[in-house]
């Protein structure tokens, strides 16, 4: 099954040390939303970073393919790889408060890459930025273009980052926990906005989150990650009806329900964790030379 982004047996580790991603395979089809869930430290964000080429320097890709639109990114030289990702993929980052450059106005932060990397005329880039800011429901976009990040609220900044991500009409967007750093009241709006933008622009979206509730609202398919290993890849409907892997089932059971305020939180049972840890250990045994 091929998709716009297809990751095949990707293994990433700390240089000369611990495994970060173990033989990860997943597919994001054109125009579809693929959720990537897992607990903190499971390696969710690292998959996004590996695709975008922004892995920390201490990490290395040991093996595997990252196929974007039919080309294996690992085979390209760094410059060509950068250019291709810049033109066809974009990131919606986690924390809007730190993802905008504090010393630059908003306008250039959206338009510069269109001019510098994609060779747009400056006027066209500015018109495009205004149009996008309107699309993400920002009032008075012309004024916002002239503002500095510190003059805007977190929700506004996340809208700007979403607009900026869609600026070059990328075919793939990677959203790395885009609502985690926001107020609960703003989270819903931003989630709805990402969903709306995704379907309007018909973009493939890799949605990284630890929140199954969020996944159920926006995703078509999902992968569950544990300790850098995909334990289950499924379409949404099937997953919520009949999770196959015990860890997935436990994760679903652990999702708090807001309808019952007296209900206690259910942790993932230790037996399930032991089981999945054993699987990871067995995988490492097989992978070892």
């Amino acid at each position: 099954m091929s998709g716009y982004l297809s990751i095949r047996n990707l293994t990433v580790r700390l240089k000369g040390g611990a495994m970060i991603l173990r033989d990860v395979s997943l597919t994001v089809r054109a125009g579809q939303v693929h959720g990537l869930v897992g607990e903190s430290g499971a390696g969710k964000s690292m998959i996004g970073k590996a695709v975008l080429g922004t892995l920390p320097r201490a990490l290395e890709v040991v093996s595997g393919q990252i196929i974007l639109d039919g080309t294996d990114l690992q085979t390209l030289d760094p410059k060509e790889r950068r250019r291709r990702i810049g033109a066809s993929a974009a990131l919606i980052p986690q924390d809007p408060l730190t993802a905008l450059n504090p010393s630059k106005r908003i306008g250039p932060q959206i338009t510069r890459r269109l001019v510098d990397i994609l060779g747009w005329p400056k006027i066209a880039a500015e018109a495009r930025a205004l149009e996008l800011l309107e699309e993400v429901h920002i009032p008075d976009p012309a004024r916002v273009m002239r503002s500095y990040p510190h003059e805007l609220s977190g929700g506004m900044r996340q809208r700007i980052l979403i607009a900026s991500a869609f600026a070059a009409e990328p075919k793939l967007i990677i959203a790395d926990e885009p609502t985690t750093a926001l107020d609960v009241t703003v989270q819903k709006q931003i989630l709805r906005l990402i969903s709306e933008m995704q379907s309007r622009h018909d973009t493939a979206l890799l949605f990284v989150t630890h929140d199954l509730g969020v996944v159920s609202k926006v995703c078509d398919t999902l992968s569950v990650l544990y300790a850098g290993k995909v334990v289950e890849e499924a379409n949404m409907h099937r997953f919520f009806m009949r999770p196959i892997h015990p860890y997935s089932a436990a994760l679903l059971a652990a999702t708090p329900t807001y309808t019952d305020p007296t209900g206690s939180l259910t942790p993932v049972p230790q037996t399930v964790i032991d089981g999945v840890e054993r699987e990871v250990a067995e995988h490492d045994m097989r992978a070892a030379p």
Binding site: L52, T54, R82, R83, A90, T98, A99
Partner: peptide, 17 residues
Amino acid sequence: HLDYVTLARTKGYGENH
């Protein structure tokens, strides 16, 4: 290490820029 620098990398900018 900051996010806006990472974001600039994903836009296709090289190390010098």
